[in-house]
Design a protein around this nucleic acid. Sequence first.
DNA 1: GTGAAAGCGCTAACAC
DNA 2: GTGTTAGCGCTTTCAC
Lengths: 343, 343
Amino acid sequence: MTSHGRARSVTIKDVAHLAKVSPKTVSNVVNGYVHVSPVTRKRVQRAIQELDFRPNRSARNLRRGSTGIIGVIVPDLHMSYFAELSHQLLMAAEEHGRTLLIEQTLGDWRREEAVIDHLGDRFVDGVVVTPLAPHGSAFTGRAGMGFVFIGERPSGCSADYVGIDNVAASREAVTHLVDRGRRRIAAIGLQPEPCGGTPLQRHTGYREALAATGLPVDTRLEKETVRYHLHDGARAMRSLLDGPCPPDAVFCFNDALALGALRALHQRGLRVPDDVAVMGFDDFEATEFSTPSLSSVASDKAAMARGAVRLLLERIDSPERPAREILLGHTLRIRESTVGGFS
Amino acid sequence: MTSHGRARSVTIKDVAHLAKVSPKTVSNVVNGYVHVSPVTRKRVQRAIQELDFRPNRSARNLRRGSTGIIGVIVPDLHMSYFAELSHQLLMAAEEHGRTLLIEQTLGDWRREEAVIDHLGDRFVDGVVVTPLAPHGSAFTGRAGMGFVFIGERPSGCSADYVGIDNVAASREAVTHLVDRGRRRIAAIGLQPEPCGGTPLQRHTGYREALAATGLPVDTRLEKETVRYHLHDGARAMRSLLDGPCPPDAVFCFNDALALGALRALHQRGLRVPDDVAVMGFDDFEATEFSTPSLSSVASDKAAMARGAVRLLLERIDSPERPAREILLGHTLRIRESTVGGFS
DNA sequence: GTGAAAGCGCTAACAC
DNA sequence: GTGTTAGCGCTTTCAC
């Protein structure tokens, strides 16, 4: 391992010179081109090793017109759901020899647009997006680049999409609560009106389950939250408990809200699930370890990530292909927070 | 917003042609060079807008010899600590107009080396690393690139580093437990022998606290874990409870272990902190919302991230500068798991 | 199977 | 202030 100064990096020419071949041949070897005689290949490989040559990726990217980099846009990396998803995306991208470039929108759609714009300089081959506020304007503009959406689909434009049936999943979750004898089932995580997307779908599933089981809708049991963080869940739960008609169950639109709700219930001295049952959504890793453990709706995030990457690579390959959708299954994971145990 | 086909992307030449100036002038405008007459600048800007020109970053990177991209190497993005840290690093990088490229080692040091190797192709300007297994071999080899270490410092080579005083922090944490009257204080999170680094430092702090307060060392109270996940903590806790001398407190080397321990204690019907007090490390966001809430050692992750990025940029700027270290303060966050409440 | 030459799109020198 | 020229390091025709 010869230690060169940082004066000039080793180029293909240097290798070619040392191996007494042309640059083209070195390139062939580096890129695993088949038609190279074994003896030449060996010589080139030795020279590469000798000089510790590593092809300059910027040059390659420029020449090839693509970078092998996939952009990922998530609201916030430190929310469990997006951390898990990004993790899975990293693995999925690696399976295809791609690199990931993760950007955060922080739930601000001006930032979302800025980020997309930033990615528009032919620096990523395509983008996987988990939009927070689902308004597709920013994406439709950048028709030149491949986009795949996970979880949330932008309204308006048709696009490649991977997700689950949120309405059905929510319906099942709430039906489970009804089956356990709950009658005053609250919902936490609604979003202010103009917003559609996942929150709306989960709300719809909630309402459908109530309707199907003959339970009345009570809007005082439906709580909006600003975000989907732990403290939003706790605050909403407290507000429900302080309200005119405390619930005997809550369906939270994600697990962070649910974990926050658990905390609030514990602080008020209420027992879960005896006094109030709690159902989450997304099946965070932490749900198995909360006290009590949290029932939740699980989706296969690894499959989602793989699907998204596959869809994106197809899209990059054939930009004109009609949009496709992958709808994955979901599973209700029943734990202590809805069926007892020994809380 | 004219929609061009994807035949050929718009180049600087096209803009120059339309604006009737030279490519150089366009470049000057794009890069905010000052010495451009206002009227020319306007004309160029209009042309840029007209053609929706966006400079090709691969070309720019090649020419400039740097990419503005900072590599980040973490063990696993879906472990809370690294998710939070990556989040902070993204923000810190953005402050300096840099982009982040995150890679995972999955705690495997063969992968760690592969990842570092992968980043060696002049594609990132420098790298921020949170090594899991701290053996610096892989880094010392790549002297050509700037490295900054967070939390864990590689043994052997001196390098830029940002971290906290783990020994002192651990000592304080354990001393707090002693002050609360605990006498059989266990430790969870030791690593197998050849490993130094953070686990060793936290263990050292633990031992120092025992020594300072005259408590005996009992190796049966010191538990190794394979990883630092929730279930590792739960398993270690169960093993302690099944052991010959159940503890009245545990000091866990990170919060995931501690949350797992909480869960195991709850399952055994033990009360926290009445029967067993639990102390964590890292101050995850979730610690405030667990039942009971978890005492932990907090470090300023945002400051860490900013420090790391700053150090790295300095290093890139002057590669020969002697290595620097930033040691940040820490805070003991006392919550219910060590001092009561109404568990 | 291998070499020669051209050029990806941009910016750094240097002229004017 | 602005234009001209050259070249970053690679891959890709096309010969041979």
